[in-house]
Design a protein around this nucleic acid. Structure first.
Length: 811
RNA sequence: GCGAGAGUGGCGGAACGGCAGACGCGCCGGACUUAGGAUCCGGUGCCGCAAGGCGUGGGGGUUCAAGUCCCCCCUCUCGCACCA
């Protein structure tokens, strides 16, 4: 071994050897237990990886190496989420083509991951923008189509002026585009493709119960799905035979208190029922509501506004005619876009009624007999009053009674409504997976037959989005013009491409058999490897990717393609690493720290250790380069220790009992902490052991201790551990070794410190043999000078003994 | 507004209800050095010469014992936000 620890001299050497010897290839034998470890599909950006990204990849790499050493067949693959708007927008900005930038960026990511010593099976690398991959994305589209889960519909949808495309609901955040947080979305009316994710709403909700995910993420999914039980009812519109207002309510028990109705401004009924006298005012209001941004419209602080349509609905319960208003606090996209207003029991309706002088009947009273509040709605459950046949019933019973009555009289029925909408997947953009559909004048919508897949994305130089609502693909006649697979006549291809999230909804299956050409995946490979044993990624995907991937998995399960219902039974979110200034790392802010710079300065192993040591894996932290100095120093100290041992001729040694104990205690701690993803404390335990053994003579340490130390270091600092292992005289890689085992008996403390407390204050510490009997400890304690002084002759009232821990004396 | 999580030395962070501050950074002192952003040794929560006292956002409570459990409040982060 060299005298000095020089990472540059050892890291490239071992990386080359690992690669050439196929160290991290996925084992073909399936006799051993498997461990499928996966990080969320990265989009390879032009900025490359930062030390923030590594806070995900390095800990996962440790898990992979650890599992391999503990006897698992490990599948740890990597690939690129390369289709989609981010890649295309970047290429447009740089006046390049994504077909050129994507492979270049991916290659850079790969280089950086290798530089950081991350072990992936690169023979399984996939790229969602290649025909070999997207052929099967199209295949899944057809599967959804066949199962009635992909459909085309006209609707008013979110449009981003920067993306020049329609977005899904999930991609609108605070009224702005998820990729352009300063760009408010607007509405556009287009015919679009949807995936019927709402058909899976209940299963997506229920199956959350059985999976080990951060509670926060589960909650976000629950909220997003937004299941709400109630009833759908309808009131006829007076003077318009055949017209009625259908509405959803969670409080059907308040129907007797409905004094007006409100429609969303966009509601189709508005045009038909508005009276000539109100027409001008209504038109003006509708136009103004259209113009408003979503942020303005959704603002809860804004005072409610609305306009009377002049029309009346007939409240079939009270037999009264009630006015129909329009107001923008009613959303077209939820329920039926219409509500019954029960101002006595709903705060929003209450405010509206107050403002426009509408009656506020009270139909629910507090159950405990206290007076009904006058200055606000009474929104809690209570007891029904002034309500005909349900008067006197508790709210819960009244709800059931109305639901039943409505069903009998064919006025309505019990319903469940969801906040979640169907997933809109059409994108009017070039860089995406073409939708395998053909439009024929005779046969209408015709799916492309499987045998004709993939529908290849044509090579275009001029792929700028038009902004007209049509994809640039519409400008490629050779692509658009085709023949109908059914009748053979002339037909046109669908020119929109799929949302990038379609590609990432099944990629975890592809890794099981990435080169399969006759199917999206090999069934046997998937049966063995899936589901994913540990899935790691950022919390920002809580309600996009994770919801979509779960839905596709259930579709595949229903189709009999796979035998599991949840793709990711265990999910963890790595903590976000902010720049040293507390901001997000970005090129524009000039605060990005790259792994390249850190490896150059301190070496990959030191960088890795600092990624692990910075703080708890799942907590966010600010980057601090000073820390890398510390882990580099730690590695130097280990280097010096091992070198001293090797220079002394690697003595077998006869370690003292205490040294043996320290070793076994460290193995116990490190094993336990890596299993629980507590990498920071696992490393702390290794540092602690180093502090202990570094001061011993080589013969006092002994071979067993040195070797187990190197083995434990191997997943975290793979290069330097390999160097040590070879220096210790081994021919085979340290990464092919078995994880050290510990002996619980040897790890047990012989001598323990028992704390003596008097009235809760520590007054003395006793060193006694482990498991010393209570009376002996008592005797020792009462014999102690410090204890005597503090007892001051008083007699103990109570003495509590916690074996091997403390003796608490109360006086 | 509603929901979730978090507040511990100068800093990152440790602590099955049982010695608060492991481990590391930084800092202070020393050794070896032509030199030190190397290495090694020692120290480092605050007050105090010491004995000792005080300390985990604030206030109360349970307990022999509370960073940890319970109640109230403050601050920060995240999510949702007129969802009928």
């Amino acid at each position: 071994m060299d005298e000095r620890y020089d990472p540059k001299a050892i890291e490239p050497k071992w990386q080359a050897l690992w690669e050439s010897s196929g160290l991290y290839l996925t084992p073909a034998d399936r006799s051993r237990p498997k461990f499928y470890l996966l990080e969320m599909f990265p989009y390879p950006s032009g900025e490359g990886l930062s030390v923030g990204h590594l806070h995900n990849y390095v800990p996962c790499d440790v898990v992979g190496r650890f599992r391999r050493m503990t006897g698992y067949n490990v599948l740890h693959p990597m690939g690129w989420d390369a289709f989609g708007l981010p890649a295309e927008n970047d290429a447009l900005l740089k006046k390049l083509h994504p077909k050129e930038t994507v492979p270049r960026y991916a290659a850079n990511f790969k280089r950086q991951l290798k530089l950081s010593g991350c072990a992936y099976d690169w023979t399984r690398e996939i790229n969602s923008s290649t025909p070999e991959y997207y052929k099967w994305t199209q295949w899944f589209f057809l599967l959804l189509y066949k199962r009635g889960l992909a459909y085309r519909a006209v609707g008013s949808q979110w449009w981003c002026d920067k993306c020049l495309s329609i977005l899904a609901n999930e991609q609108v955040i605070d009224g702005c585009c998820w990729r352009h947080t300063d760009t408010p979305v607007t509405k556009k009316e287009l015919e679009q493709w949807y995936f019927r994710i709402t058909a899976y709403a209940d299963r997506l909700l229920e199956d959350l119960e059985g999976i080990d995910w951060p509670e926060r993420i589960k909650l976000m999914q629950r909220n997003w799905i937004g299941r709400s039980e109630g009833a759908e009812l309808a009131f006829p519109v007076s003077g318009h035979p055949g017209e009625s207002v259908r509405f959803f309510t969670t409080r059907p028990d308040t129907v007797f208190g409905v004094s007006f109705m409100v429609l969303a401004p966009e509601h189709p009924l508005v045009a038909r029922i508005t009276t000539p006298g109100q027409r001008a005012e209504v038109d003006a209001y509708v136009a103004q509501a259209r113009r408003q941004s979503e942020i303005e419209r959704l603002s809860t602080v804004k005072e409610k506004t609305g306009v009377f349509t002049g029309a009346y609905a007939h409240n079939v319960f009270t037999d009264e005619d009630i006015p129909i208003w329009i107001a923008d606090y009613v959303l077209m996209g939820y329920g039926t876009g219409a509500i019954m207003a029960a101002p006595g029991e709903d705060q929003r309706d209450f405010e509206f009624a107050r403002k426009y002088g509408l009656p506020i009947p009270r139909v629910t009273a507090p159950a405990d007999g206290s007076p009904t509040p006058e200055d606000r709605a009474f929104t809690e459950y209570g007891v029904t009053i002034n309500s005909g046949f349900i008067t006197g019933k508790p709210t819960r019973d009244a709800i059931a009674a109305i639901a039943q009555y409505a069903q009998e009289k064919a006025i309505g029925r019990p319903t469940v409504t969801y906040r979640m909408r169907d997933w809109l997947i059409s994108r009017q953009r070039y860089w995406g997976c073409p939708i395998p559909i053909v439009y024929c004048k005779t046969d209408g919508i015709v799916p492309v037959p499987e045998a004709q897949l993939p529908v290849v994305l044509p090579d275009m130089t001029n792929y700028q989005p038009s902004g007209t609502g049509r994809s640039p693909l519409a400008n490629v006649p050779e692509f658009v013009n085709t023949t109908c697979p059914r009748c053979g006549g002339p037909a046109e291809r669908e020119t929109d491409t799929m949302d990038g999230f379609a590609c990432s909804s099944w990629y975890f299956l592809r890794f099981a058999s990435p080169h399969e050409t006759s199917a999206p995946f090999d069934r046997q490979a998937v049966d063995y490897w899936l589901p994913v044993d540990l899935y790691v990624g950022g919390a920002e995907h809580a309600v996009m990717h994770l919801l979509y991937a779960r839905m596709w998995t259930k579709v595949m399960f229903d189709a009999g393609l796979i035998n599991f219902k949840e793709p990711f039974p265990v999910l963890r979110n790595q903590g976000m690493i902010w720049a040293a200034d507390g901001q997000k790392m970005s090129k524009s802010k000039g605060n990005v720290v790259t792994p390249d710079a850190m490896v150059e300065k301190y070496g990959a192993d030191a960088l890795r250790l600092w990624e692990l040591f910075m703080g708890p894996f799942e907590e966010p932290t600010n980057w601090n380069e000073e820390g890398v100095v510390g882990t580099a120093r730690f590695l130097t100290r280990v280097w010096n220790l091992v070198r001293r041992y090797v220079d002394a001729g690697c003595p077998q040694g006869k370690p003292a009992e205490q040294t043996l104990r320290k070793t076994h205690q460290t193995i116990r701690t490190v094993t336990d902490h890596i299993e629980r993803l507590r990498f920071n404390t696992a490393l702390a335990a290794l540092m602690d052991e180093l502090n202990y053994i570094a001061r011993l003579e080589p013969a006092e340490i002994g071979r067993a201790a040195i070797e187990s130390y190197v083995l434990m270091l191997a997943p975290m600092a793979p290069h330097v551990a390999e160097e040590f292992w070879r220096a210790l005289g081994h021919d085979e890689s340290v990464h092919r070794q078995k994880w050290p085992a510990f002996d619980p008996d040897l790890a047990k403390d012989e001598v323990v410190t028992v704390v003596v407390q008097i009235n809760g204050k520590v007054r003395d510490r006793l060193e006694v043999a482990a498991d010393t009997a209570e009376d002996q400890v008592r005797a020792l304690a009462f014999d102690s000078a410090a204890v005597k002084r503090h007892l001051d002759g008083k007699t103990p009232k109570k003495v509590i003994y916690v074996p091997n821990k403390l003796l608490s004396i109360v006086v």
